[in-house]
Write a protein that binds this DNA or RNA. Structure first.
Length: 225
DNA sequence: CCAAATGGCACCCTTACCTCA
DNA sequence: CTTGAGGTAAGGGTGCCATTT
């Protein structure tokens, strides 16, 4: 079962869950509308309202800070860099900031937020996956319980199973579910456990986990041979 | 050598601003 | 035009680790 990414955000995700193919999607779904207009050299102040100089001013009661919007090109380069490395060392940060005409702090913040978005996305996917898993297990549980009821109804008397080896009836107390092959197995009391496929095969479709099914041994069977 | 102080960094939570339906 | 939701840059607090004193 695969859970597809639910959004078209440009997040690169890896998820390590059983039976879960990691997915990555990088459509350029960044807003096409470039509200900042790509700044020409020397015109950054027009769009970065809060630059290095008014940084302190805004922190102690100056004019309300305006919000920086990165240009498409800046976002693209940051994204590209993030794909290579989710963290930056000081040199890389400095170089990237120079290249993007941003402060190193802004690059740092962008990476911080980007990591957070990545993690959030991954958490959402894991949540989705677990929900589906839960649903599947619930359904499986329902099915198995129904099956148990049917088996109980079929064998009102002491339940017996015909042994394929001796062609003699076996007591139900020797029945158990093999969690590996998901078949009902019999335990030969004299020769030790043997795996035997019998006419009724209980299949349990799990995702990728082993479901340990309780054995039927708790049932007393007074009527052996 | 050891312990306290310091600085840098990542993470987390939150706020403020912006855009869009 | 107004409003609420969603996205995101940035602020501030905290913990961890390495380095310095």
């Amino acid at each position: 079962m695969a859970v597809l990414p639910s959004s078209s955000s440009a997040l690169e995700l890896t998820i390590s869950m059983p039976g879960f193919a990691s997915s990555s999607s990088l459509p350029s779904s960044v807003r096409d509308l470039d509200i900042n207009q790509v700044p020409s050299i020397g015109a950054e102040e027009d769009w970065i309202t809060m630059n290095m100089d008014d940084e302190e001013e805004s922190s102690n009661g100056g004019p309300p800070r305006k919000k920086l919007r990165l240009t498409k090109e800046q976002s693209r380069l940051l994204e590209e860099s993030f794909r290579q490395n989710h963290t930056l060392n000081p040199k890389q940060k400095e170089a990237l900031a120079m290249q993007l005409k941003l402060r190193p702090r802004q690059v740092e913040v962008w990476f911080q937020n980007r990591r957070a978005r990545s993690k959030l996305k991954q958490t959402e996917m894991e949540c989705e996956y677990l929900k589906r898993w839960f649903g599947s297990l619930t359904e499986q549980n329902r099915r198995l319980q129904r099956e148990v009821e049917e088996l109980r109804a079929m064998k009102v008397g002491p339940p017996t199973v015909i042994s394929p080896h001796s062609c003699e009836p076996l007591p139900a107390s020797t029945l158990s579910m093999c969690p590996r092959c998901e078949r009902v197995t019999t335990t030969n009391l004299e020769k030790g456990p043997t795996k035997t496929a019998i006419t009724t095969t209980i299949t349990a479709t799990t995702m990728s986990t082993k479901v340990t099914t309780p054995t039927l041994q708790s049932r007393q069977s007074p009527a052996a041979c």
